[in-house]
Design a protein around this nucleic acid. Structure first.
Ligand SMILES: [Mn+2]
Ligand SMILES: [Mn+2]
Ligand SMILES: [Zn+2]
Ligand SMILES: [Zn+2]
Lengths: 139, 139
DNA sequence: TGTAGAATGCAACTTTGTTGCAAAATACTT
DNA sequence: AAGTATTTTGCAACAAAGTTGCATTCTACA
């Protein structure tokens, strides 16, 4: 287990390939969530199809999670440790989209509050996304 | 002001055209939020491009709002009266996506709870989307 | 009724996402 | 360490989604 990327792959029982390592490394060094296109540019030695399939695999294994946005682009981010380890996935933090710099951030410390649904509805997952101006743009 | 669609268009200072009326009628008679593709099918006498441009216009005027989803498809729904009337847009209800029937619903009665962002972040809009099984599918 | 300006349809195009299959790489056995 | 079953990748071809420019048509208003 020389590096973190390999360790993540092995603990998800995935074979270690250079494209998978590269994509995990990209997430590890990114401070924000990434769109498919971002990853495509940062990993341009690999085929577009490979990136689609890799992200799909990572989603299924709970290595990454998606963040819905209002502009029709899904963003992806690494799951935090406890998010991965604890049986099934629960990604219960708020996400922030900066309207100025366009960055998407996991606000890991801001929990999604509990809400009560009308009778008859059952909840399986919940997403909370805030748009606004981020810390860096404001400063 | 013969009908509701015309009345909505006029109060948004938009010229009344048959495609715009048709699209508003589709929203008025829909019980759920609609994807671009849904509207395309229900208004197939009009060009795809017209539908793109019309939805864009309606968004800008606050006639409709978008609902982000995790499957990379934006859904659109009519804004409620107070959402439209009160100066700038505030769409503060929770949305529900049924994993079984695929429908997207505005839960107009479920308000988005207030959250506190970390220092430095300012909020302009907020979205809360719940995935699960809807009332009708559960019954 | 005539006209300026706005909206639409069409064509051409770009971008995004999907699928099948052969070649290459990985993990595992001996 | 070499051989092999299995998985992953790249490529090609395709389908779907979204964009743009421009000529034509429609709408609002004088
Ligand atoms: Mn996150
Ligand atoms: Mn709504
Ligand atoms: Zn920012
Ligand atoms: Zn349902």
């Amino acid at each position: 287990m020389v590096n973190q990327a390999e360790s993540i792959l092995k603990s998800s029982a995935l074979s270690v390939t250079s494209s998978r390592k590269k994509i995990i490394d990209i997430f590890l060094s990114a401070s924000t969530a990434l769109a498919h296109q971002d990853i495509e540019k940062l990993a341009d030695q690999y085929d577009r199809v490979t990136i689609y399939r890799t992200l799909q695999t990572f989603l299924e294994r709970g290595i990454i999670h998606t963040i819905p946005t209002t502009d029709n682009t899904i963003k992806y981010a690494l799951c935090s440790d406890d998010c991965i380890s604890s049986g099934h996935h629960h990604d219960n933090h708020v996400h922030f989209l900066c309207d100025q710099c366009g960055r998407t951030l996991c606000l890991d410390d801001v929990m999604i509050p509990v809400i009560t649904l009308p009778k008859g509805y059952s909840m399986k997952a919940i997403n909370m996304v805030v748009n606004g101006i981020c810390k860096l743009c404001r400063a």
